[in-house]
Amino acid sequence: MNSDYLREVFTEYLQVEKNASPYTVKFYQEDLDTFFLFLEEEGIEHVKDVDYAAIRVFLTKQYEQKLSRRSVSRRLSTLRTFYRFLEREEKVDSNPFLQVSQPKVSKPIPGFLYEEEIEKLFHVNDLTSPLGQRDQAILELLYATGMRVSECANLKLVHVDFSIGTVLVRGKGNKERYIPFGRYAQDALEQYIHDGRAKLVNKANEDSGSLFLNARGTTLSTRGFRLVLNKMVKNAALTINVHPHKLRHTFATHLLNAGADMRSVQELLGHKNLSSTQIYTHVTKDHLRNIYKNSHPRA
């Protein structure tokens, strides 16, 4: 079995046809390497010789290594995709991983900020300084759109359309979507772009075109976004853990609490499946309970 060759062609398939991110490809490769090592240890010479019994042994070994159900579930998904690819390329006759059910994984309830908590963050930045203007624009835009931090970090100036109040976002799999933003985000962005960003870009040799810049005038990294938020929390004297993704959770939760429909929130978040969006209904149960109590005649 030429595992190096199979790994190479599968990686090419992920990158070219599936348009998978480098992060996703990395995890697929690691899962595949684990599987190939297992085949070698078990003396299974070819991928077409893997059957249901071999898969059960593989799963047992994963649990013996104290892997979480979530990690095992991800590896199964990887190998199911891998064998689907092999089946298409006629390197195997069938996909044995279709016989194996995914382990039940409990979905953690996403953390979010209450309105009074996020309100404090909006008042900590120095709007007279370029970095303060930038930080305010980041906070307003993340909360206004619910985009991922990676999507925000990749934004260019040309992606912002003030005439209709939307931003063009390139999400997972390079899929594009337009997300509207409101007056607060627009005011913060306009102040930053016309004042703070113009001053920051003068510190660099050339304008990268990126929307958000660091103190040197070059593109702000995803790590930089996290540092910006941590600084805001510290300045607001909040004892909460805030990361960019929590603002995404907050965006979705506040929309659903205010009565937005699930399909619209799914589209705004760029979720492929509605099930990914439905997790946010868990954090709106108290709100729904209150509506029921106040609205139902026999509540």
Results as ranks from 00 to 15, higher is better:
60 T>S: 14
66 K>V: 12
107 K>H: 13
32 L>F: 02
117 E>S: 06
88 R>D: 03
41 E>L: 11
50 V>K: 09
45 E>I: 13
109 I>C: 01
40 E>G: 06
61 K>C: 06
69 R>H: 10
19 N>P: 11
32 L>C: 06
40 E>F: 11
78 T>C: 06
63 Y>M: 01
63 Y>L: 01
27 F>M: 10
51 D>T: 09
46 H>N: 13
55 I>R: 04
99 Q>G: 13
76 L>Y: 09
90 E>S: 15
99 Q>W: 14
49 D>N: 15
59 L>G: 10
25 V>L: 06
82 F>I: 00
64 E>Q: 13
51 D>R: 07
83 Y>Q: 12
88 R>K: 10
11 T>N: 09
23 Y>R: 07
65 Q>N: 13
76 L>R: 01
61 K>Q: 12
92 V>R: 02
10 F>H: 02
61 K>I: 03
99 Q>Y: 13
22 P>F: 00
10 F>L: 00
113 L>S: 03
94 S>F: 10
55 I>N: 06
69 R>Y: 06
71 S>A: 02
54 A>W: 11
53 A>N: 15
11 T>G: 00
19 N>V: 04
18 K>V: 04
79 L>K: 05
57 V>Q: 12
31 D>T: 02
96 P>I: 03
91 K>M: 15
30 E>Q: 14
122 F>Y: 12
37 L>H: 15
23 Y>Q: 10
47 V>F: 07
53 A>Y: 15
30 E>V: 13
32 L>M: 05
116 E>L: 11
8 E>N: 10
75 R>C: 03
93 D>T: 11
98 L>V: 11
9 V>R: 09
70 R>D: 08
12 E>V: 12
115 E>R: 11
31 D>P: 06
106 S>E: 13
66 K>A: 12
55 I>K: 08
100 V>P: 06
118 I>P: 02
